[in-house]
Amino acid sequence: MIKRAKLLGYARHPWLVSLMERRSAKVAAVALANKIARIAWAMMSRNEPYRAIPVTAER
């Protein structure tokens, strides 16, 4: 997803691309893993399905 965020840019992964502008790709990968783990934990603890948030281009 790190490579795809560089290619697709702000439209699909704005927080990840902005993070990669400030930090290295390795730090961004750890942040992405942390985000995915938190989403998975919240889904399992609440017994809810994944609800994707619509992405809006704000540029």
Rank of each mutant, 00 (worst) to 15 (best):
R22F: 04
L19Y: 07
R12T: 07
P54E: 08
M44H: 12
S18P: 00
L16D: 02
K3P: 13
N34A: 05
M1V: 15
R59Q: 03
K6S: 09
S45C: 04
M20C: 07
M1N: 11
A25E: 10
R4L: 15
A29V: 05
V30I: 14
R59T: 03
R46L: 06
L19K: 10
A37L: 03
H13L: 05
L8P: 05
A5P: 05
A25M: 11
E48G: 09
K3I: 12
I53S: 15
A40K: 04
V17Y: 04
R38S: 03
A25D: 13
R22H: 05
M43V: 06
E21K: 11
S45G: 03
L32S: 04
Y50M: 15
T56K: 10
S45P: 00
A29I: 07
W15K: 10
A52C: 15
K26T: 12
I2D: 08
R51V: 10
R12G: 00
V27Q: 08
A37W: 00
R51A: 14
E21W: 06
K3S: 11
M44C: 09
R38P: 00
R38H: 03
V27D: 04
M43W: 02
W15R: 12
A40M: 01
V55C: 14
L19W: 05
V55I: 15
A25F: 09
A42K: 15
R38Y: 01
V55W: 03
V17N: 01
N47R: 13
N47S: 13
P14Q: 00
M43N: 02
A28E: 01
R23W: 08
H13R: 11
E21N: 13
V27Y: 08
R12Q: 08
A57N: 06
I36A: 03
H13Q: 13
A11S: 09
Y50F: 14
A28C: 09
Y50H: 14
A33R: 13
V55H: 12
R59W: 04
L7N: 09
A42I: 03
A11I: 05
T56W: 05
L16H: 04
A40Y: 00
I2Y: 11
E48R: 15
V30P: 01
R38Q: 02
S18Q: 08
R46V: 05
S24C: 07
R22C: 04
I36W: 00
A37G: 01
A28R: 09
R23E: 08
E58R: 12
T56I: 09
A33T: 06
P14R: 01
L8G: 08
A33N: 05
E58A: 13
G9P: 02
E58V: 13
Y10A: 07
L16V: 10
K35S: 01
S45Q: 12
Y50T: 08
I2A: 09
V17I: 14
P14H: 02
R51S: 15
R23L: 08
S18V: 06
W15A: 11
N34M: 04
M20E: 01
A29E: 10
T56F: 06
R51C: 14
A11N: 03
Y50N: 11
R51P: 07
W41K: 12
V17S: 03
A29N: 07
A33C: 05
W15G: 07
L32T: 03
I2W: 06
A57H: 07
A52I: 15
R51F: 13
P14M: 01
R4C: 09
